[in-house]
Design a protein around this nucleic acid. Structure first.
Lengths: 112, 112
DNA sequence: CAGAATCCCATGGGATACTG
DNA sequence: CAGTATCCCATGGGATTCTG
C-alpha cells in the first residue's frame, strides 16, 4: 500500500499504519523494546507463533523503514543481532498504550 | 486467530492486537474519535480507500468486541449511526500515540 | 544459526450488482 | 442510505526442505 502515500500525501496517521501494518510488527517491536538487542533465534522464540520465514520478511521491512538495525557477525554458526533504531525506540509510547489497554480490558477481550 | 487466546492465555498485548487486527480498524476508530457519532456513509467517506463491504465487516467485528455500538432508525432511507463505546473511547491513547509518532516522523516514512 | 527457496492454501479485500 | 450477495484475485502467511 505504498501507493496510499501518494493518494493522501499528508496523512501521517495512515502512513504510520502502513509502516506497522501486518500481523507481526507490533509484536516484534514489543519484544525488542523489552529485551533490547536480540538474536534472530531469540526473537523467533519470543514472538510466539511466528515462523522464521515471516520473521525474516518483517524484519527486512522494518529495517527498510529504519525501525530496526541489523548487524551480522562472521561467526560459525552465524550470529545476527537486531536492535531498535532511535526511530524504532520512539515507538515505545504506542506499544505502551496498547499494553496498558490490554491489561485494563483483559476481561472484556478474553471472552471474544 | 481467536485460538491464540487459548495458546497464550495471559498475553494482554497480543489479545489487544487481535481486536485491532486488520487493515482498517485503527483508521475507523481514529475517525470515530475525531467526529463522534457517525453515519455509515460518513464513515465510508472519511476512511479513505475503504469499501462499503469492508466497512460493514470491520464494524461488525468492532461491535462484537464491544468497541463500537450501532443504532438504526426506521427512516426512509435508513439511518444507521455508529458510536464508540466507553471501551472504544478508552483506545484514544493508542490512537493519539500513533498520530503523534506519525507527525514527528513524517519525513522518515514519506520516503518509504 | 540465520536465512533462502519452494510449495501451497486460506482469506483479506476489491469490484460490481442488487435490495428494502 | 445501509447494507447483502457474488465473483474473483492477490498476497499473507504456514510447512517443509536446503545451505553457508
Amino acid at each position: 500500500m505504498a501507493v496510499r502515500g501518494k493518494e493522501f500525501p499528508n496523512c501521517a496517521f495512515r502512513q504510520t499504519l502502513d509502516v506497522l501494518e501486518g500481523k507481526w510488527k507490533f509484536a516484534i517491536i514489543h519484544s525488542l523494546l523489552l529485551h533490547g538487542t536480540m538474536r534472530f533465534k531469540t526473537l523467533e522464540r519470543d514472538v510466539a507463533g511466528i515462523t522464521a520465514r515471516m520473521l525474516v520478511k518483517e524484519l527486512k521491512l522494518l529495517e527498510a523503514h529504519g525501525i530496526v538495525s541489523r548487524r551480522a557477525y562472521a561467526t560459525v554458526p552465524p550470529t545476527v543481532e537486531y536492535t531498535l533504531t532511535e526511530c524504532g525506540l520512539s515507538l515505545e509510547p504506542i506499544i505502551e498504550a496498547i499494553q496498558a489497554w490490554g491489561e485494563k480490558n483483559r476481561a472484556v477481550i478474553s471472552q471474544a
